[in-house]
Design a protein around this nucleic acid. Sequence first.
DNA 1: TTGTAGGCGTTATCAA
DNA 2: TTGATAACGCCTACAA
Lengths: 358, 358
Amino acid sequence: MTNSITGSQPTIEDVALLAGVSTATVSRALNGTSNVSSVSKHKVDLAVKTLGFIPNAGARSLMLRRSGTIGVVIPTLSNTVFSQAMHGFQQCLDKSGYQLLLACSNYNKETEANQVRNLISRGVEGIALTGGSQNREILSLLKQRGIPYLHVVTHRSPMKGYSVGFDNCKAAGLPIHHLFALGHRKIGVLVGNIKNNDRSKSRLHGMLAALQQENYHPLEIVHRECDYSIESARSSFMSMIRSFPEITAIACGNDVIAHGVVLQARHCGFSVPRDISVTGFDDIELSEHLLPSLTTVRTNAAEMWFIAAEKLLGLIDKEGLGTRHTKSPVQLIIRDSTSRPRSHSLKLKFKEVQSSHA
Amino acid sequence: MTNSITGSQPTIEDVALLAGVSTATVSRALNGTSNVSSVSKHKVDLAVKTLGFIPNAGARSLMLRRSGTIGVVIPTLSNTVFSQAMHGFQQCLDKSGYQLLLACSNYNKETEANQVRNLISRGVEGIALTGGSQNREILSLLKQRGIPYLHVVTHRSPMKGYSVGFDNCKAAGLPIHHLFALGHRKIGVLVGNIKNNDRSKSRLHGMLAALQQENYHPLEIVHRECDYSIESARSSFMSMIRSFPEITAIACGNDVIAHGVVLQARHCGFSVPRDISVTGFDDIELSEHLLPSLTTVRTNAAEMWFIAAEKLLGLIDKEGLGTRHTKSPVQLIIRDSTSRPRSHSLKLKFKEVQSSHA
DNA sequence: TTGTAGGCGTTATCAA
DNA sequence: TTGATAACGCCTACAA
């Protein structure tokens, strides 16, 4: 009944007691759901301030059957593109009064499923998922419970779901065709791990498909996977260049990997793009500032996730259930990391470097 | 009573009904709080699976008076150092079964206070705050309600709170003394906005103090603030260099700003460190890979926040209330972006660049 | 080992 | 305009 000095969590009842009104009136005064006399309102406001009352969201959503929260599952926060993404997503939620519940899957399908269950248990009113390769079981769980959900960064929507994004496969062909148009004929492909990452997988497929379209023989195609770190990209680049010094360009599955390649190439004394051209994917902040600035595919993560949030809120309000897929624009940004190839330059230069190291 | 095919949120009662036991037994079977016959346990497990039952966390924490969540307020996710930080923080929480509730203040004190209130209303059992310059009102609210909280990235702890971090002021002196030891006498200082950012403010003070210690006359000291973006750092660098072409080194308040300075300097045709030395602060992933690699202060964000999480969990368990401040190690990392100065090189070179642009 | 019943903090219904 | 009361979904004495 009385508040001890420490450890007290004042309830609506404490407020009612202090204000000399009923809990119902306090609730009404606080939520403005019904008319309350200004006298009561003032008494309540004062009591709230005095006690430092903060309503219990759990109890509240129990009654309201809505929590005011939206969940999102991304693979990781380590890649800048997802930080950007969350920035855009939050931006949209903020203006609608929703609170973001963020969860990371660490590129693990089982973790992802657990995180979704976790979000459900916290009563989220909608969920945004990264990509479209989730556990079917978890998707039908969402369906069964009537919780709206969305696949982002993809144009696929398994199990008749909704999606906001673009065709990773097609988009990944853009840099390949660009390189080919510049005259490159020996192109290496370096993407992030494709395990549990359907975006990376699609990009790889898209790049390989584009190469074949350009009359590449499948056997000529050089591709590798690496971790999503600069470190890993650097060593993968080295291994690739050692095995295939004749390549004149490398197309990367994302910008972080491309940064690693550019930095390692220059570290080796190669000139980019003079000795080797490099392309990325995402267009994160640093890419336009890098030396040389990076030719890449702009996917506009922040904007895409902003749109995703809007779509999700729409699904929650049961409006515009129409379009299954919302397209997010994608654009090839040509900068300084690509140019016409010099024939066999890398091969020669690499030999120099090797001998100087010996 | 019956579950409609869609939109159903099965409750513990539905499970009990299907399993043919009481809700109490279901609860016990699920939480393992008391002995349950293996027959009942199996029936319950089956029913849970069939129904896709997921307990309501809100209702649960209402009874348990604990939510299993920890809150954290950081300024933004845009700066990589905070993504790293959250990675470390989450890593620690995961192994303790706690769930992270993340909120961003956007460097706004009022937003920060609101986010804290938000976290409280969601029943977090502890809160980690960035820096030590919060609203006093919000801190006493936390105190009054007996919710353990922590200041991270600082050695200050206002209102007898706890902190995990380091002395930003002292740490920021490290690169200055390093530059001075190399022979630099005209050093520019470029930090992030100090408004609502006590870390940035302390670093600025620390740098200026170090300069004075090195017998700088206050009037000689050149310093500027900029936004936390590469773009902003680049233009601030230009403006600084235009006004004071005699400087031979720039000490930056964080690595992102330093990256901007290095890239812009090279963009202008300056050589780093030959024409100008640059230092950063944080040691984010890219810094060791940058060309040239960046001399900076390693604060080990991920590790620091991991420790912070441990400390916070300790406070929740009422153990080791002893040390008010937990020190996190800080270390000057000397790389390739700093060297002895060439006298007046920049001034001359700058004139070349200017005339060639004219 | 199990079931019944009461209550966690909130809001909605219904009378007054 | 207000107040008593019954839920919301869950857990935990207490009794059986």
